[in-house]
């Protein structure tokens, strides 16, 4: 279970602190999926970064199981990212100097959970069989995002955080990637939290929340 309670976050600017999140509450059950929506600047990526342990809250708490993220030090947050979550970015963020097969296995190896059979399953499901020996720059956007998905899921994380994973893709590719993602999640107990501004994408997930000026404006199940 992921719990976000009264989270505040602001950033320093020359004009003074800029509040981004102003008391956000959120709960996500294990195995479920949530779309985090809102207009640009509403704080959705910030919230995702806080849950990923990439940034620290100014106030409030973030809990996952027995882990209190707001009380972790830097080493503990790194451990959290390595072993408990998978991250998918809009810009793929693959390691350009490693081949596809090495990219896929990278986080799983870091976490000490590399399972060749599970990886083979992902390769087959994501249609990456012919691309394993290539480098990321030799792939299309859709192909790179599939590799990024594969890398995130290869370590079998409890929580998958996706920051606009289809934002750089056309509609057809977007649907294809999303379909693959949801099918793969059906096969695992991984919880999904996805930032998106697409209502079409949000409609495919079990829950939806909308952030507006750093506060929750809407929460709903589908």
């Amino acid at each position: 279970m992921l719990s976000v309670h009264g989270v505040f976050k602001s950033y320093a600017t020359p004009q003074g602190p800029l509040p981004v999140l102003q008391g956000v509450d959120l709960e996500l059950k294990p195995g479920s999926s949530l779309a985090l929506m809102g207009e640009s600047g509403s704080g959705k990526s910030t919230l995702l970064h806080l849950i990923a342990g990439l940034d620290k809250v100014d106030g409030g708490s973030i809990t996952s199981g027995e882990h209190r993220l707001d009380q972790m030090n830097e080493a503990q947050l790194a451990n959290w990212r390595r072993t408990e979550i998978g991250l998918v970015f809009q810009q793929f963020n693959l390691i350009g100097s490693l081949r596809v097969e090495d990219n896929l296995a990278f986080q799983a190896r870091l976490a000490g959970r590399h399972d060749p059979r599970w990886q083979a399953h992902l390769v087959q499901r994501l249609g990456l069989g012919d691309l394993l020996r290539r480098y990321p720059e030799q792939l299309s956007g859709g192909q790179q995002q599939r590799v990024a998905l594969g890398r995130a899921l290869a370590s079998q994380p409890k929580l998958l955080l996706a920051d606009e994973p289809t934002g750089s893709l056309d509609e057809a590719t977007s649907d294809e990637v999303l379909k693959l993602l949801l099918e793969l999640l059906d096969d695992s107990p991984t919880t999904l939290l996805m930032v998106t501004h697409s209502p079409r994408v949000a409609a495919r997930l079990a829950q939806k929340v909308v952030l507006h000026h750093g506060r929750l404006a809407d929460a709903g199940a589908h």
Partner: peptide, 16 residues
């Protein structure tokens, strides 16, 4: 720098 971000995001601590 992209690689460094990815490594940190994948759970490599700053010290490591």
């Amino acid at each position: 720098r992209g690689l460094l971000r990815t490594l940190r995001a994948c759970g490599v601590s700053a010290r490591m």
